[in-house]
Design a protein around this nucleic acid. Structure first.
Length: 509
RNA sequence: CGCGGGGUAGAGCAGUUGGCAGCUCGGCGGGCCCAUAACCCGCAGGUCACAGGUUCGAGUCCUGUCCCCGCAACCA
């Protein structure tokens, strides 16, 4: 976040690119929604945002899957990649770009990167030794073997070695360790940072950047018989989306990335391999790498064998996009692992969204209608202090990428407003004190405006509905300082009733 | 002794630098009638996994023990 709110900053945020060997599931959605919330928040505070997501489409697994589906690899990728795009549309994801590793701009960029790495001397030739199964046409690990044989073909794999190119990771480790240790490159949450620092102590080997046996990939520019190893290919997307080359305007404008967001499983690649590659390239390192946790579904790990992957599409169909975004992010603190009980979704939907946001909006707008014919009746500052405090909490949370705490702040604001109604009893004031009634209603309306603004990153649709009921739907031209200032609503302007934001779900118990 | 995370109210989780155990949901009791059978207040419910230790004081720091879960096989 910009320390100085009146200077417009850029904010480059990424999700991992998702591997198209799989359909989008709730885990992909979690990462992407979180990124979207942060991207939208940064737009709200006036940053120029580049929010990137996309799909990772190379590798022998893809080629195999395509074969099974009787398609060319490209057709297969087109089809699955489209499923991700569609899923993100359904969830109102506001990504500015969607990169696919089979796109020409990516292929060109990766070749630029590989050439540059080669020229810098970071890449050297070596031998990759392993157990190769002819039937599978790939290397197997020791642990895949059953009785020393390939579990699929029941044959003993051959011990062979192929020529490979390696990246000289070790050379960059001392400098990288120092930078991470001194938080020049921030790794969050803090326990993940410690985990990464622990890896340095265990020691790490150079990694291979190419494969000879894989055909579906990007050929090395200096050796056409090899294709780029999946991580070199995939990680590069953060640069190739900026048209990585000497004179790229996008690169100048947006690099380095402000935030690489991902789940904890691929932290190692982002915290070690990627920065080391960037050092070799002579590029700046990402400012922050944030690895969030995994979740379990009803106490069980998400896995293919258990078949408990959830399709975000089904959730959206049941609760709506806004609610899914809210519910997923409010299950547990952002960053740690947590358990998601699906049965709680409907309960929480009713308590937080229907009874909370929906009902508050409804009761306030109904009172304006009833007591003042839908006209903002006065101006007052009765709740400005409380709202200011909530803004502080909210912005602090967002600056620390703690989306869950931002939601917490929103909940608190709703609770304040509900309590304010109860204490002031507008229905009694209507009979005794019109002047005070006008002020009370004004304060509630103004709270609604602030609520809607804070809601915008998390639930854009609901936010828009509230703002347009208040006649404030166009806020993009205003700075955050202007927006969050108390008194945005002017006496005499008219307010519409809103449709039910979150219809109550009938408990299916 | 592979590395790491964790065991706090019926459920899901917070507890920052040690200073009176909190939040949400659920349960029970009251209040209110503007609102989506919504809202507000109060109550009950915890030996903070266990055993030691440091301290005026430990959920928090130290030592040990037990249990759960990740990482080496798909996977955010």
């Amino acid at each position: 976040m910009a320390l100085n709110d009146d200077i417009m900053a850029k904010f480059y945020i990424t999700t991992p690119i998702y591997y198209v060997n799989d359909k989008p599931h709730i885990g992909h959605a979690y990462t992407t929604i979180a990124a979207d919330v942060l991207a939208r928040y940064h737009r709200l505070i006036g940053d120029e945002v580049l929010f990137l997501t996309g799909t990772d489409e190379h590798g022998s697994k893809i080629a195999e899957s395509a074969k099974k589906a009787e398609m060319t690899p490209q057709e297969f990728c087109d089809q699955t990649s489209a499923k991700f795009s569609l899923a993100w549309d359904e969830l109102d994801i506001s990504n500015d770009d969607f990169i696919r590793t089979t796109e020409q701009r990516h292929i060109t960029g990766v070749k630029n990167i590989l050439n540059k790495l080669k020229e810098s001397g970071a890449i050297y030739e070596g031998e990759y030794k392993g157990l190769y199964c002819v039937g599978c046409e790939r290397f197997l690990t020791e642990k895949e073997l059953i009785d020393g044989k390939c579990p699929i073909h029941k044959t003993e794999p051959q011990q062979i070695s192929e020529k490979n190119y390696f990246f000289n990771l070790k050379k960059f480790l001392p400098r990288l360790e120092k930078m991470i240790d001194q938080n020049e490159i921030k790794i969050l949450p803090d326990n993940r940072r410690k985990e990464v620092l622990g890896l340095f102590k265990q020691g790490m080997d150079d990694f291979s950047v190419s494969r000879e046996s894989v055909k579906w990939g990007i050929p090395l520019p200096f050796d056409e018989n090899q294709v780029a190893y999946v991580w070199v290919d995939a990680l590069s997307n953060y640069l190739t989306a900026l048209d990585y080359s000497e004179g790229s305007e996008k690169l100048k404008k947006f690099w380095p990335a402000d935030l690489h967001l991902m789940a904890k499983d691929i932290l190692k690649f982002h915290a070690l391999y990627w920065p080391a590659m960037l050092m070799a390239l002579g590029e700046e390192l990402p400012k922050t790498i944030f690895a969030h946790g995994f979740f379990m579904i009803d106490g069980e790990k998400m896995s293919k064998s258990l078949g408990n992957f959830i399709d975000p599409h089904d959730l959206v169909a049941e609760f709506g996009s806004d609610a899914v975004r809210y519910l997923l992010l409010s299950q547990f603190p952002f960053g740690v692992d947590g358990d998601v009980k699906l049965g709680n979704f409907a309960i929480q939907y009713n308590s937080d969204l229907a009874n909370g946001i929906g009902n508050l909006t409804s009761r306030v707008l109904a009172m304006v209608e009833k007591y003042f014919n839908g006209v903002v009746p006065a101006e007052d500052g009765g709740l400005s202090g409380e709202v200011g405090d909530i803004w502080s909490d909210y912005q602090k949370a967002m600056a620390e990428f703690r989306v869950d705490l931002a939601i917490e702040a929103i909940r608190k604001l709703i609770s304040i407003a509900d309590g304010y109604v109860d204490v002031n009893k507008p229905w009694e004031l209507a009979k005794s004190d019109q002047e005070k009634l006008a002020k009370v209603i004004y304060n509630l309306l103004e709270v609604l405006r602030h609520l809607a603004l804070m809601l915008y990153p998390v639930m854009p649709e609901c936010s828009q509905k509230i703002l347009s009921a208040l006649g404030k739907s166009d806020f993009t031209s205003l700075t955050i300082e202007e927006l969050k200032k108390w008194g945005g609503l002017v006496a005499g302007s008219s307010v519409a009733k809103s449709e039910q934001l979150f219809p109550r779900l009938v408990k299916a118990e």
